[in-house]
């Protein structure tokens, strides 16, 4: 991507596009992927409140899954899940299915 010149960029480095970092996909950092066993999940939301990256996707107070575009694979969710409903799977293996 061609970078913009000084006349084209915002004055003083202001960013008027709040939360635009979602375009930066930190999921590529991941070595281990969290996989949720929905048979065990009680939707207690501990994974959600402890996630450093806000990647636990939620709708109507239910866990839908993990935003893999941004999840860095720290494994906090798996460690803290009281039902052990989340396991960390090696990313390469997970990608192979």
């Amino acid at each position: 991507m061609a970078q913009k010149g000084w006349k084209e960029i915002s004055l003083a480095g202001l960013v008027a596009d709040p939360g635009n970092s979602v375009a930066y996909e930190t999921g590529t950092w991941r070595a281990f992927r969290p996989v949720i066993d929905f048979d065990k999940c009680t939707h207690c939301m501990f994974c959600w409140i402890y996630c450093p990256d806000g990647t636990i996707m939620v709708e109507d107070s239910k866990v839908l899954g993990v935003d893999l575009k941004h999840c860095k694979g720290c494994g906090i969710c798996a460690t803290e899940c009281p039902r052990k409903a989340i396991i960390m799977v090696e990313e390469a293996k997970a990608q192979r299915g």
Partner: peptide, 22 residues
């Protein structure tokens, strides 16, 4: 948590904190 978990985070993902940063 059930009450608040549907709110959008005011800190968006895509930040570059180390893995596991608190």
């Amino acid at each position: 948590l059930k009450d608040i978990c549907n709110q959008q985070d005011r800190l968006a993902p895509g930040h570059r904190a180390c893995t596991g940063c608190s």
